[in-house]
């Protein structure tokens, strides 16, 4: 190989392609492919007895049949509802906020605001969620404050409602949405917005036609960073939603921790991974189709100008 004279010297000295990616690939193999592979392998097995967790002596798809029962589907649809609503809420709150931060706040203050956004992350995830439980309970701060202000006359409880779940979800995941959005919006040159304004577009049209399309990678990153962990998180929902916060992740965890049925737990985990991936793909596809439909007419109206000149 090295004796091949036709290979330019620089090319021979250069790092072989792929070498730079090796650590990343090794990481991926070790911490993603291997565990998922193992889970998949377990999912084809069974729970042989009361005191054993799994066995692969017989390979079967029966666990998938069990996994896809009523319980799983009901839990999953509830989880999907919380996942989608929570992600949408994070986007609805995070987008204007990130825009304000990237565009309106003076550069030297942005750091301070970003630090404030991240303050909740300095505390343990569970502690800050349970903190909300304290705030939202009938004897809690929110209820007392509203009573002393005369807004309500009996203790109220927001705890263990869907609203509490969404509140906790937004609280815990909003920074994951804001950060990528902020980075994406901050990277958009301010003169592009000025150019749009100068060309006759008001603020809203500028946002829709220039800022949002350019922030798309950030929006996608934010959606994924919130949606994926949220679909697997059952703590936030259980702490604040109680029975109303039943998440499919809890079902999977209970198979591993309580039922000690790793085969069924693995099958549920695999189904969950597949369904989450399909949801993301479907959303991405729907987004692409919408964009295409929205811009299609405009592209047609300008198509062929270049060819016209060649003729």
């Amino acid at each position: 190989m090295t004796s091949d004279r036709r290979v330019p010297r620089a090319a021979r000295r250069a790092v072989p392609p792929g070498l730079l990616a090796t650590p990343a690939l090794a990481w991926l193999a070790l911490f993603f492919v291997a565990p998922v592979g193992l889970v998949f392998w377990y999912s084809l097995g069974r729970k042989p007895g009361l005191y054993q967790t799994h066995a692969n002596d017989v390979l079967t798809l029966d666990r998938y049949r069990e996994a896809l029962g009523d319980t799983f589907l009901t839990s999953f649809s509830g989880t999907l509802r919380i996942g989608v609503t929570g992600t949408a809420l994070c986007l609805a709150i995070g987008l204007p906020f990130a825009y304000w931060l990237a565009v309106k706040v003076r550069p030297h203050r942005r750091f301070v605001v970003l630090a404030l956004v991240l303050v909740p992350f300095w505390t343990n995830f569970l502690i800050r969620t349970i903190g909300w439980q304290v705030v939202l309970s009938p004897e809690g701060f929110a209820s007392r404050a509203m009573q002393s202000l005369g807004l309500i006359d009996a203790p109220f409880s927001m705890l263990f409602t869907r609203g509490a779940v969404l509140l906790g979800v937004v609280y815990n995941y909003l920074p994951m949405m804001i950060l990528p959005l902020y980075v994406a919006l901050d990277r958009i040159d301010g003169s592009l917005r000025e150019a749009s304004n100068d060309l006759g577009a008001n603020r809203w049209r500028t946002a829709l036609q220039v800022t949002l399309p350019l922030a798309r990678p950030g929006i996608a990153a934010g959606l994924l960073l919130v949606f994926i962990p949220l679909m697997g998180d059952y703590v936030t929902a259980a702490v604040l939603g109680g029975a109303r916060g039943n998440m499919v992740g809890q079902l999977v965890a209970s198979q591993f921790q309580q039922a000690q049925n790793w085969a069924l737990g693995s099958a549920m985990a695999v189904v969950l991974i597949v369904v989450i991936a399909l949801t993301i793909l479907a959303t991405a596809a729907a987004g692409a189709v919408c964009t295409w439909l929205l811009t299609h007419r405009r592209r047609r109206e300008l198509a062929g100008i270049a060819e016209g000149s060649a003729a």
Partner: peptide, 18 residues
């Protein structure tokens, strides 16, 4: 009966959360 009890309670939780 453990496994059945687990399944019953999981089903109950799904119902309570729906």
């Amino acid at each position: 009966g453990q496994e059945r009890r687990m399944a019953i309670v999981n089903k109950m939780k799904a119902k309570a959360g729906a």
